[in-house]
Amino acid sequence: MYDGIVQELIDELGRLPGVGPKSAQRIAFHILQTPSFDVSRLAKLLAEVRERVKFCERCGNVSEAELCAICRDPRRDQTLICVVEDAKDVSAIERTREFRGLYHVLGGAINPMAGVGPNELRIRELMTRLADGTVQEIILATNPNLEGEATAAYLSRLMGDMEIAVTRLASGLPVGGDLEYADEVTLGRAFAGRRSA
């Protein structure tokens, strides 16, 4: 649609997750039309992120050190591990300020159609963490979709013989939602997870 390098920039931006063709075009033209936009700083940060950021050796969260800030924090509850699919899930849970334990990032979910089985995830590392007997509860916080449910069921079965409580995040109706728009699975879970008022 555009000549040369402008179209290349739009195409490259469009390869980012969640950025469609129109958003890519808007970002490209923002870069082109905003004189104060510091392109060299953005390029430098992108290069530094790729160079300096790695994954925590213990939990798999993003970190610039061998252990992430959460794993290094002695105030965190060492007996509680919340298992999530991706590092961005850690950030979402941390924003709630409700959880004070540790995390374990699997690096995805079981998805046979995409060729992702248990061996492609950080399940072996999780089992190693559980071996010393410190952990008393595992909270399975995988996504409430087919792959996340399969992963949670697999982990629950795997830890069935261990003397560790295995719990799952509650799911149901969102605050401010209307019953008429809720799908059957969400509404069913809301009924199953009901509590006294």
Results as ranks from 00 to 15, higher is better:
residue 164 I to Y: 01
residue 39 V to P: 00
residue 84 V to L: 08
residue 178 D to G: 10
residue 166 V to T: 09
residue 78 Q to F: 00
residue 174 P to S: 15
residue 53 V to Q: 01
residue 80 L to Y: 07
residue 28 A to R: 07
residue 153 A to C: 00
residue 105 V to M: 08
residue 175 V to S: 13
residue 44 K to L: 12
residue 102 L to A: 01
residue 34 T to F: 01
residue 144 P to N: 09
residue 101 G to Q: 08
residue 85 E to D: 12
residue 55 F to M: 11
residue 160 G to E: 11
residue 128 T to C: 01
residue 22 K to P: 06
residue 38 D to P: 05
residue 182 A to I: 04
residue 63 S to G: 08
residue 119 N to T: 14
residue 186 T to P: 03
residue 65 A to S: 14
residue 19 V to D: 08
residue 155 L to Q: 04
residue 16 L to M: 15
residue 194 R to H: 12
residue 83 V to Y: 08
residue 140 L to C: 05
residue 74 P to C: 05
residue 41 R to D: 06
residue 74 P to H: 04
residue 109 A to M: 10
residue 58 R to C: 01
residue 77 D to I: 02
residue 116 V to R: 09
residue 97 R to G: 00
residue 108 G to N: 09
residue 116 V to C: 03
residue 68 C to D: 06
residue 162 M to K: 12
residue 82 C to Y: 03
residue 121 L to N: 07
residue 13 L to K: 08
residue 49 V to R: 00
residue 13 L to W: 06
residue 15 R to D: 05
residue 185 V to L: 13
residue 95 R to W: 00
residue 29 F to V: 09
residue 156 S to G: 01
residue 42 L to V: 15
residue 74 P to A: 05
residue 13 L to I: 12
residue 69 A to V: 13
residue 79 T to D: 02
residue 189 R to E: 13
residue 123 I to Y: 03
residue 117 G to M: 07
residue 124 R to I: 05
residue 73 D to F: 02
residue 93 I to R: 04
residue 197 A to T: 03
residue 121 L to R: 10
residue 55 F to V: 13
residue 197 A to H: 09
residue 70 I to E: 03
residue 142 T to M: 05
residue 174 P to E: 07
residue 190 A to L: 03
residue 107 G to Q: 07
residue 189 R to D: 02
residue 184 E to N: 10
residue 134 T to I: 13
residue 131 A to V: 01
residue 94 E to Y: 05
residue 146 L to K: 09
residue 19 V to P: 12
residue 25 Q to L: 03
residue 162 M to H: 05
residue 71 C to W: 02
residue 78 Q to T: 12
residue 139 I to C: 04
residue 10 I to G: 11
residue 44 K to I: 00
residue 117 G to C: 05
residue 183 D to C: 10
residue 176 G to T: 09
residue 14 G to C: 10
residue 110 I to E: 06
residue 187 L to H: 02
residue 64 E to A: 13
residue 109 A to G: 03
residue 102 L to Q: 08
residue 169 L to I: 13
residue 40 S to Q: 14
residue 106 L to F: 08
residue 54 K to C: 11
residue 35 P to Q: 13
residue 22 K to D: 04
residue 30 H to M: 12
residue 39 V to R: 14
residue 69 A to R: 14
residue 133 G to T: 07
residue 103 Y to R: 06
residue 92 A to V: 15
residue 33 Q to M: 05
residue 105 V to R: 10
residue 90 V to M: 07
residue 184 E to W: 00
residue 69 A to T: 14
residue 84 V to Y: 09
residue 125 E to Y: 00
residue 90 V to L: 08
residue 26 R to N: 12
residue 135 V to L: 08
residue 108 G to L: 10
residue 109 A to C: 10
residue 108 G to W: 09
residue 138 I to R: 02
residue 2 Y to K: 10
residue 138 I to E: 02
residue 177 G to Q: 03
residue 132 D to V: 06
residue 124 R to P: 00
residue 61 N to G: 04
residue 92 A to S: 15
residue 68 C to F: 04
residue 150 A to M: 11
residue 131 A to R: 14
residue 174 P to G: 10
residue 32 L to M: 14
residue 96 T to Q: 07
residue 46 L to Q: 01
residue 88 K to E: 14
residue 51 E to T: 14
residue 109 A to F: 03
residue 168 R to V: 05
residue 30 H to E: 03
residue 23 S to T: 15
residue 45 L to V: 12
